[in-house]
């Protein structure tokens, strides 16, 4: 724990380190984390349909602060849709989203979203540092451009994912894992309360996966809510504190071990699972 704090203090924004220390003290004092719904991101009654096809129905979900939550389910279960609808990126039929008790429209400063890597054009004329700087947008007025302080902060965030030496590299030159790290650095620069990532481990190398998990754990330890759409059932119990098992409706959610039981997995995946389900 203290190692993570030191790493955060050395490499990352000071506020993250301070919050991590506070989080550690809190955990030491209280055996269990009892979290009110307002502490984190909460989704109530969320339904989305694409045309006439319902994608997700009546989803209630809680993504508490200080926890890493995996959204798990079979292909087409609506995992990405849940994330996007919760963020207002796809229109929802019904539902309400609150972040730290605030409605979504007033919570723009509190959310960092990391879309699927393939969702953007990496041929875009930008360097690694330019993408990291985009995370600082909310801090700048309309006319002001990014200055030296912003650049320093963006470099700190790149350092947290081991990409500082690539700062001046064209983003199109990066490998998939490096692109994912740059996306994470952009999210770190936002200094948000809730981090929502869509398949952050898809198509990345093992070193990147380790680096990303380490950074996400730092965020968790600093009291942030971390939510990932995740598809690897074997790593889910290792990486995540909580899981939300989804197949158009919520099958189960809670602490990972209690949620990803063989029975629940069968319910979510149907008969398709037998080999993959049992770790």
């Amino acid at each position: 724990m203290s190692a993570a704090c030191e790493a955060a203090a050395a490499a990352g924004p000071a506020r993250l380190a301070r919050d991590a220390a506070a989080g550690a003290a809190e955990r030491a004092g209280t055996a269990t984390m009892a979290l009110a719904p307002a502490q984190g991101m909460s989704v109530r009654g969320l339904s989305v349909s694409y045309g006439r096809i319902p994608a997700i129905m009546d989803v209630d979900a809680d993504f508490p602060l200080g926890a890493m939550t995996a959204i798990i389910g079979p292909n087409g279960a609506g995992k990405s849709t849940l994330l996007k609808a919760a963020l207002g990126l796809v229109p929802r039929l019904t539902g309400e989203v609150r972040v730290l008790g605030r409605p979504l429209e007033r919570a723009r400063d509190l959310i960092a979203y990391v879309p699927q890597r393939a969702s953007v054009d990496w041929e875009f004329p930008a360097r690694v540092i330019d993408v990291a700087l985009m995370g600082l947008y909310r801090r700048k007025g309309l006319w002001r451009l990014f200055d030296r302080n912003d650049r320093r902060r963006a470099m700190e965030c790149l350092a947290m994912v081991g990409m500082e030496s690539f700062a001046r590299r064209q983003i199109g030159e990066l490998s998939g894992g490096q692109q994912q790290r740059v996306f994470i650095a952009r999210a770190l620069a936002q200094d948000a309360q809730a981090y929502l990532l869509d398949e952050p481990f898809a198509g990345v190398d093992a070193a990147t996966e380790r680096a990303i998990v380490a950074v996400l754990r730092q965020l968790r330890d600093a009291g942030r809510a971390v939510v990932c759409v995740h598809h690897d059932l074997s790593t889910a119990p290792v990486y995540f504190d909580r899981a939300l098992l989804l197949n158009r409706v919520v099958v189960a959610q809670g602490p990972t071990a209690e949620t990803l039981t063989p029975r629940n997995l069968r319910l979510a995946y149907g008969g398709r699972l037998e080999t993959a389900a049992t770790p």
Binding site: L87, R108, P115, S119, V120, F124, D130, V131, M134, Q190
Partner: peptide, 14 residues
């Protein structure tokens, strides 16, 4: 710049 590169991220941050 931000909305041209990544409209999803742009929309989320307002």
């Amino acid at each position: 710049t931000i909305s041209t590169f990544d409209p999803g991220h742009a929309q989320v941050i307002g």
